[in-house]
Amino acid sequence: MGILSGNPKDEPLHYGEVFAIWTNLATNNGLIAAYQTFFNHTGDEDLEKMIEESIQCMKEENNQLEKILKINGIGLPPAPPERPVARLEDIPIGARFNDPEISAALSIDVAAGLVACSQAMGQCIREDIALMYGQFHMTKAQLGAKLLRLNKSKGWLIPPPLHVDFPDK
């Protein structure tokens, strides 16, 4: 039997897998803090639910990622402290993020997360890690679809120029 046969959990991680996992964890840590701040700035209940769902998804990812790094003796990236809850009314209007900006930021992060998960899946040689990233990808795709629906329903989506003129045949 070779080093890369048998139970995937007994196989060593390669440096690309380590980097993807560590970077994913560090990114999630930063985004969780940012989203907690966004939560303080939003006045829209539907957007609040999306922020909460996004934070919960990242925390669930982090549990899996931390476990893999710890098992493999790899130090965890630093994490910022939890953000305190603030009242929207206490944040000056000119200093607030507005709801369309928050929703756009979440959408951008989901799109970037889909690309990162696809890249991680493509470089994995451990099937369990590739499957984990496939699961993360599916969850992010579902979040992205919900955000798209929210952006459309609230009128927050700014589409690029639409191609509506078709050449005559």
Rank of each mutant, 00 (worst) to 15 (best):
N7M: 09
N7R: 07
P8F: 01
P8K: 07
D10R: 01
E11H: 15
H14M: 09
Y15F: 14
Y15C: 08
G16K: 13
E17R: 10
A20Q: 13
W22Q: 00
T23E: 15
T23S: 15
A26K: 13
T27C: 05
L31H: 13
L31A: 05
A33Q: 11
A33K: 09
A34G: 08
Y35C: 04
Q36K: 10
T37F: 03
T37L: 10
H41G: 08
H41A: 11
H41C: 03
H41P: 01
T42H: 03
G43Y: 11
D46N: 12
L47C: 04
E48C: 09
E48D: 08
K49D: 14
K49E: 12
M50G: 01
M50K: 03
M50L: 15
I51P: 06
I51W: 06
E52I: 07
E53L: 11
E53N: 05
I55T: 08
Q56L: 12
Q56F: 10
C57V: 09
E61R: 12
E61V: 04
E61C: 08
N62R: 01
N63P: 00
N63L: 13
N63R: 13
Q64Y: 11
L65F: 15
L65R: 12
E66L: 06
E66W: 05
K67H: 11
I71N: 11
I71E: 15
I71K: 14
I71S: 08
G73S: 06
I74L: 10
I74M: 08
P78S: 10
A79P: 06
A79R: 13
P84A: 06
V85P: 03
R87T: 01
D90Y: 05
P92W: 01
G94D: 05
A95C: 07
N98F: 01
N98C: 05
N98E: 01
P100F: 07
P100E: 08
E101Y: 07
E101I: 01
I102E: 03
I102V: 14
L106N: 07
S107F: 00
S107E: 07
I108C: 01
A111K: 11
A111W: 02
G113L: 00
G113A: 15
L114M: 15
A116K: 14
C117Y: 12
S118P: 02
S118M: 11
Q119L: 13
A120D: 13
C124M: 05
C124I: 00
R126C: 09
R126N: 09
R126Y: 06
E127S: 03
D128I: 00
D128T: 00
I129Q: 09
L131R: 13
M132W: 10
Y133P: 06
G134T: 04
G134E: 05
Q135T: 03
Q135M: 03
H137F: 10
H137C: 06
M138D: 05
M138V: 01
